[in-house]
């Protein structure tokens, strides 16, 4: 199983409890549609795309996504999140070939 590069960004960088922040999750993924041909061999590249993204905070899910191949290569998902306090933000993502990966980030509100 390949390890994928991913990143969670929080905007703005400084926030306090109760603030609504933007959480961006980026992942390096080919998101192949299954309709594109390999230029060298002429064979179709099998579909390979993320089909589930789950955002959790302290193991409580707050946003779930079902996605399809119409998203771009190396997709970005940005949502809002109201910071309830310190804890751990985790993103679990699955793709149609059975890969399951996760990425987490500590939430540390100041003040």
């Amino acid at each position: 199983m390949e390890t994928r590069k991913s990143l969670i960004k929080i905007k703005p960088k400084k926030y306090t409890t109760g603030d609504v922040v933007q959480v961006s999750f980026m992942v390096m993924h080919p998101m192949d549609t299954g309709m594109r041909k390999d230029k060298k061999t002429g064979k179709l590249i099998p579909a390979h795309y993320i089909n589930e993204v789950n955002f959790t905070f302290n193991d409580t899910s707050f946003t779930t996504m079902k996605t399809w191949e119409s998203l771009s290569t190396n997709p970005v998902f940005t949502i809002n999140f109201k910071v309830p306090g310190p804890g751990e933000l985790k993103v679990v993502y699955k793709d149609n070939q059975g890969e399951v990966n996760e990425k987490s980030k500590k939430i540390k509100p100041k003040g």
Binding site: W68, E69, F81, K82
Partner: peptide, 26 residues
Amino acid sequence: KNSNVRCADVMLTPANGAAMLATRVK
């Protein structure tokens, strides 16, 4: 007009604070 018109279904909860989604599509 894509062959599969669905891009993403995003289920939100009140914990999000505000309803927003930004992504990139093909």
